[in-house]
């Protein structure tokens, strides 16, 4: 069983809401990525979303853009990201890892080669922002190797398309809470509750809600109606400038623990 599926089954059995932090691989420091991943787990992460830096992150706001630029300036490539996942797996064989990024780095690496290396490293899923279901034929080698393709649904997604996405969903379905880019603060939980309920009723996989979750309060509001909460820009922003593995772990704990507690208190 894929780690993502196992983790969501466990969450469901325990009646808990999943916490999915996003960090950009290589930011703030390439040498501390593995420590950062362990820190996320220690602070309550259920799934780790690891951003693969890309030069043209069209769907990202300034926070993740800049994190991506900093990582690229330090020479981070897709091979490094896979190496870090492999290193993380030496001490953690349970926490699912999803790579999130854009298509071109995978395309250039080669789909079959990427699939084989990602599985060997211990990656569980991929979320390719600019590869909608209609263009996903190229990702077949990834799916055939057992990697879950995490699909997105958005407020703009039309009803027929939503059913198609819900049918095709595997791992989890990522519901984008508003039409916009990452990092914007436009969350309106009342607007999305009904919509997410509808998505959850249809989806063949658990539903995680992301975009606009900034702190314990907003996470808790979402926890009322989602299987999991994704928290990205707010965390990436907190990590900027952290100089050592200890400082990174400290900041992660300070930021993520209250979110975890809020989710569990729900």
């Amino acid at each position: 069983m894929n780690r993502i599926d196992r983790r969501f089954a466990a969450l469901k059995a325990a009646g808990r809401t999943g916490l999915i932090p996003f960090v950009t691989a290589g930011d703030p420091w390439p040498e501390h990525v593995v420590a950062l991943m362990h820190a996320l787990v220690e602070s309550g992460a259920d799934v780790i979303e690891l951003g693969v830096p890309f030069s043209d992150p069209m769907a990202d706001g300034p926070v993740i853009q800049h994190a991506s630029e900093r990582a690229l300036d330090k020479g981070v490539g897709i091979g490094d990201v896979l190496d870090w996942v492999a290193a993380f797996r030496q001490r953690d064989s349970d926490t699912p890892v999803v790579l999130m990024g854009y298509l071109n780095p995978i395309e250039i690496h080669g789909y079959a080669r990427f699939a084989a290396e990602a599985v060997r490293a211990g990656v569980d899923g991929v979320l390719v922002v600019d590869c909608p279901l209609e263009e996903s034929a190229v990702l077949a080698p990834l799916r055939e190797s057992g990697l879950r393709q995490i699909l997105l649904a958005a407020p703009t997604t039309a009803p027929e398309r939503l059913s198609m996405l819900c049918d095709a969903a595997e791992g989890f379905l990522y519901y984008v809470s508003f039409a916009g880019i990452t990092g914007a603060a436009r969350l309106s939980t009342t607007d999305i509750a009904a919509r997410v309920a509808d998505v959850r009723a249809q989806a063949k996989a658990p539903v995680a809600v992301g975009f606009g979750v900034r702190d314990a309060a907003s996470a808790k509001a979402i926890a009322g109606f989602a299987d999991a909460v994704v928290i990205g820009s707010a965390l990436v922003e907190r990590l900027e400038g952290a100089a050592s593995a200890e400082e990174i772990a400290g900041r992660v704990a300070l930021f993520l623990r209250p979110v975890r507690e809020a989710l569990d208190a729900h």
Binding site: M58, A59, E134, E135, T156, A158, G180
Partner: peptide
């Protein structure tokens, strides 16, 4: 093709 984020699929359609 249309290699865009999900949010743009509807406006493009």
């Amino acid at each position: 093709g249309s290699y865009v984020a999900e949010t743009l699929m509807a406006p493009l359609a």
